[in-house]
Design a protein around this nucleic acid. Structure first.
Lengths: 235, 235
DNA sequence: TAGTGGTCTAGACCACCGG
DNA sequence: CGGTGGTCTAGACCACTAT
């Protein structure tokens, strides 16, 4: 403790993180207890607690009551990914957004879709297909199933003007979701919709969303070659 | 305020989030100030502050001093992505991890790599290529440049037994990184290394890491068809 | 400049879990 | 059961920024 200036919890966090990065504490090492750090740095224990909680959230350390805090022995890369609504993503690049509805059909939810939500009894859904474009060029093809038991209102919406994407975020909030990313080769249909050669490699973003365990929608977005997703570490 | 039980900040967060999800507060709406929420719920202002900070981190609301808290008018999907070291990813699936070094060569850093770090003067790097395998089948091909000005020790390491990936995380911590994901078609060389047909679609994970603005490494990981990355929302 | 979020502090009590 | 992290509280002061 050599300070007379109050330390913010961010400053404490940076201090500890620095000690970890500079290997003053190595992988798996035990860190001093919060109270001790507080005394050493000359601040309140609550301040240290907030700092350590942040490091824990960031995946750099692990904390257990009574067990103390440890530098993660098996480091992980934890990144944060922000995905805007497609319209905004395109417009924020200064390009003109376009939207074209290709299909809209009430269907019994197909087996492979129900499986992704762990459903066994057949439920109805609305399948919606569309293309988003930027400056007139196809940007992504979207294939979506919306569970009409959970979102009955969607049946009365004219999806030729508003995309299901935008209607849902504006009218049907979700309480949880997950995403996965993978690469796939364009089949004839995808190639046509995206105006690329057959066999072109597309980045697929698949997202499931639900509200209190009730499934809302499954969407698969096929993005044209060259499309990149980026993530970074917070802070 | 109808409670007699103390409210945790997580409970306060869930309460507010629920109000947002149920559209008691709509998109863009202004939320009451922290102090008012505290009185209403019967807890300390600090508790509300912690809850709101969490909602802000999660991208659900925006906060500005004097301006107050608002539900985000333009919703975004914010997800967290954890990427383990390749060896662990494979072993945690119960598969046998294999590693094969293909190339290791000191080179002047190529233009396109320097560009990704905003470098102009030529600097040396070590190019390392390898294949990770699972149960004897190729899992990913890794093409990497390590900046030897920043990490000179790497020149003396025998990378035929330890992968650069693992050596770096164990000996050269980073202070920052970013990642991007895209799809690409396998050329002849990639097809051979991954034992897939030419033209197969691969998910590429590209990562830059640095320490205090000094570049450490650029790595491009080409994953065999079928590989999926998954992300979810925290909490 | 006044209003609102951001943070610190000191003390207290609770919750979990390792020895 | 005792040690360590997790949280609450009340009050104070600071730091932005909208008006």
């Amino acid at each position: 403790m050599v300070e007379d200036q109050k330390l913010s919890w961010q400053a404490v966090r940076d201090q500890i993180r620095g000690d970890i990065l500079n290997r003053i504490y190595g992988l798996g090492d035990k860190l001093p207890k919060d109270a001790e750090i507080a005394v050493r740095l000359g601040c309140a224990r609550g301040t240290v607690q907030r700092a350590m909680q942040d490091l824990s959230d960031a995946g750099l350390i692990e904390r257990r009551r009574k067990g103390g805090s440890h530098v993660r022995a098996q480091p992980i890369v934890r990144a944060t990914l922000d995905i805007p609504v497609t319209r905004r993503e395109i417009e924020s690049r200064g390009e003109r957004y376009g939207y074209h509805l290709l299909g809209r059909e009430p269907v019994p939810t197909p087996r492979h879709v129900m499986k992704k939500f762990g459903l066994t009894d057949t439920v109805p859904s609305l399948r919606v297909q569309c293309v988003h474009s930027a400056d007139g060029h196809p940007h992504s093809y979207e294939d979506r199933w919306i569970f009409t038991d959970t979102v009955p209102e969607i049946r009365d919406i004219d999806l030729s003007v508003v995309s299901a994407n935008e209607w849902l975020v504006a009218h049907r909030p979700y309480s949880g979701f997950d995403m996965s990313f993978y690469a796939i080769s364009a089949d004839a249909q995808l190639a046509q919709h995206l105006d690329v050669p057959r066999g072109a490699s597309l980045l697929v973003i698949e997202r499931r969303t639900w509200f209190d365990d009730k499934p809302i929608t499954l969407v698969q977005s096929y993005n044209r070659p060259g499309y990149q997703l980026t993530a970074s570490n917070p802070r």
